[in-house]
Design a binder for these strands. Structure first.
Lengths: 207, 207, 207, 207
DNA sequence: AATGAATGAGGCTTCATTCAT
DNA sequence: AATGAATGAAGCCTCATTCAT
């Protein structure tokens, strides 16, 4: 169903900039920032070392732009799920499923909250903080709507948002991707944590 | 209650090795691995640069030992909670509270599952994987016991363990430490996710 | 009188080659050889980077040709003064006035003797040596003629030529151009250094 | 007589800093700034490449400090001659002789007024301007004193100072050092330029 | 003829590591 | 055991030059 969602926001065949960003993503993911050489990124992108510097000011700049475009793209997809026309519960389910499916198909090297990559660059660090806060706001609103709809218990929306955010990182724990059943099970656990107790028998997920 | 748990496993006044490890912890946390200079660690530890090499083979070795001792110490404290004599639910509650309290008091720079620090060193990466798996096993067992006790719903114990693990990282999302109320709220959310539906009114946490 | 002497031997409107040489002159003068980029020269000349290589083999070649044409042009103008039909004293006066006036109108970045620019290129270095020697010869001859005419004291013509040459560089010392009075004063100093002592009352300079 | 004046202000055997500065002087003089590699300076100084960076922030800093210490040292020696107790004429003679002798013994790569090296570094450029102005002031004063003493004609002191300064650079024109006779002849030319006309028969220079 | 995107050789600089004291 | 001056491998980045259009 989500199979058609591309794994990354860039298409190497769309030009050298995209080729470099794709290569940068894979190389940084494989070796980490410090152990990645610009030369390696260039080689894998099929361009010369100097070409990287035609599109990016320096290594930091390349990294920052790569992360920003990746996160932007990822969050925009998630946001579509959060703000759709469906019930809060349905949107929560889809949010989790889409997110986990997107991560399942590849090595996702970077935590969404970016503490580990924030060291690289103050500008990026602050940008990530802001994105995180914005996304936490979206999650909070989703939960508030769920509460208003009577689907969720009366929990602290902000706290539940944090907790949801943490859960989203679950894939990062195991290197193996979650199976469809595991994703369903995870959604069920989260639902249970939030669901109003009178709603004993939730409608089936794919309803 | 947990206030007396020291924040770190080392005591600078216990000798140069501990001083170096404490300094290493703080410096790596502040700057990240790549941006941390041995000289800075030595300075902050109040020793000469060469002295670091009397206790550690190289920068990697220092980092690895620091992380390993930190994680070992941290997990051993958590393990005490998991394997105690109390009910599975109580142990779960204490586990979460102790973990979150330990992290609350300081900047915790490293994810327990260590994807971000695994880049540094294959040996450390594999060690962290193993620790993670062992701890996931422990969590799985806790959940199985909870199911056996009738306190938890019949969920996939392995999956729930993963989910718990993810939740443990919640503090890393926000830079601000969680308040006591927030910790309680978080525990409540997790409990709700796991709790057998007939157990509507759980016994108070501290008994 | 010399106001109509153009400042540089090239006219940008005479074609791309002249435009590039003018731009090269200004840019090398502003930034020095090492800090000057071909791209900057091309931009200022209003041509593409590749176009420079249609007219010049490489950066060194561009620099060399620029210097050579500049010096050639400059010395040929000076030489006209030296070898004219007037008396040695008059020719000396005019030589100094013309030279100083030419330099006064612009930033003259390159010493005539070229020690500082000789580093760039052995070929240019040797060429400059030769030009220098040739010009010193001309100066020597002028002085010899002055001695023969009885206008100058019996000095070492070669040494006096060196000394004259050094004096020609006086403008390079101060960034500010010399005023007409200063030029006259300078000429007067040089004359005094050379003049036969019996010629107490020289004819006024501007005659 | 001046043979005992060391050629350079540094003594390689006085430590690595002096060894590096001496090597830097010789290497920059030989190849020019842009064509000089830090590695070459280090090799010739008999130290490792990294050692240079223990004493100097970077290549520019090394160059700047080298020039400044060289000029400082050189000018301080000249200044001693200018401000001595002797007559203005004697001091002028000694000034020229000392300066020319100092330069005679070696390749002097850098013009005192530093237009050619100013491109390297703005800080250095401004510093050189200031030194130049200060030294021109000293020369001006010497000339004023000579006028007051009746030894010099009534010339513009500032202009004559500029002219003297230019003459000091005479050695830079020819690569060959001036002989003792040439130095004497040069001094004589300068004297003639300045001397009060009633002083027809000066005492012979070399006595 | 004219262009400018692409390249990669070359050099500055950092910093982990060594070792003489 | 403790030190820190010295080292040089490694990698980022610049920019002269090329070449397809």
């Amino acid at each position: 169903m989500q199979a058609r969602t591309p794994l990354l926001p860039w298409q190497p065949e769309h030009g050298k900039r995209d080729a470099i960003l794709t290569s940068a993503y894979n190389t940084f993911a494989e070796f980490g920032y410090a152990n990645t050489k610009i030369e390696t990124i260039a080689e894998r992108a099929g361009v010369g070392k100097g070409t990287v510097y035609l599109y990016f000011k320096n290594k930091n700049d390349l990294f920052r732009q790569m992360i920003q475009e990746l996160i932007d793209w990822h969050l925009s997809i998630l946001r579509e799920q959060i703000t759709g026309p469906h019930s809060a519960l349905d949107r929560l389910r889809t949010l989790l499923r889409v997110h986990l499916t997107m991560l399942a198909g590849r090595t996702y090297p970077f935590h969404l909250h970016g503490r580990d990559i924030g060291h690289v660059d103050d500008e990026l660090y602050l940008w990530l903080r802001e994105q995180k806060q914005r996304f936490l706001e979206d999650l909070r609103q989703l939960i508030e709507e769920g509460i208003a709809e009577g689907a969720f218990r009366t929990v602290s929306p902000r706290l539940a948002a944090l907790w949801l955010f943490a859960t989203l990182n679950v894939t990062l724990i195991d290197d193996a991707a979650l199976s469809t059943e595991q994703v369903a099970g995870l959604i069920e656990l989260v639902e249970h944590g939030l669901r109003a107790s009178n709603e004993e028998h939730p409608t089936p997920i794919a309803g």
